[in-house]
Simulated scan of single mutants.
Amino acid sequence: MTTSVLKPATVPSGAWAGSSRALGRFALGACVPVLILVLWQLVGQSSAMSGVVPVPMQVGRAWYDWMFGNPGMGLNPYLGTWFGNVQYSTMRVAQGFILAMALGIPIGLAIGWSRVTSLMLDPLVQGMRPIPITAWLPFSIAVFGIRDMGSIFLIFLGGFYAIIVNTTQGARDVDRNLVRAARMMGASSGQVLRRVVLPAAMPSIFTGLRIGLGISWTAVIVSEMVAVKSGLGYVLWDAYYVGRMDIVLADMVSIGLMGFISDRLIVLIERRVLVWRILQNH
Rank of each mutant, 00 (worst) to 15 (best):
L124G: 06
R264D: 08
P33T: 10
S47R: 05
P132H: 10
L6E: 13
F156I: 09
M225T: 06
T10G: 01
G256T: 09
F156A: 10
G108M: 03
R194V: 07
L23F: 13
D251K: 01
V220A: 06
A94T: 14
S114L: 10
M120C: 05
A219Q: 08
V5D: 10
P54L: 11
R147Q: 11
A15R: 07
S230E: 06
I247R: 03
P138L: 08
S140Y: 00
L198T: 05
R194L: 12
A219E: 09
T167I: 04
F97M: 15
V197S: 02
M1N: 00
P54R: 12
I105T: 04
M67V: 07
I133S: 12
P33L: 08
V192L: 04
I266P: 05
M128K: 03
G127M: 15
L121I: 13
I146P: 00
V222E: 09
V86F: 07
G60K: 06
V197P: 00
L79M: 07
I111Y: 04
M67S: 11
I247D: 05
G159V: 06
G259W: 03
G127A: 15
L178F: 10
M128S: 13
A48N: 02
M101G: 07
G231N: 02
L42M: 12
F160R: 07
V143M: 10
G190T: 01
W217F: 13
S223G: 10
L37A: 15
R264A: 14
G158H: 08
V275R: 13
G190F: 01
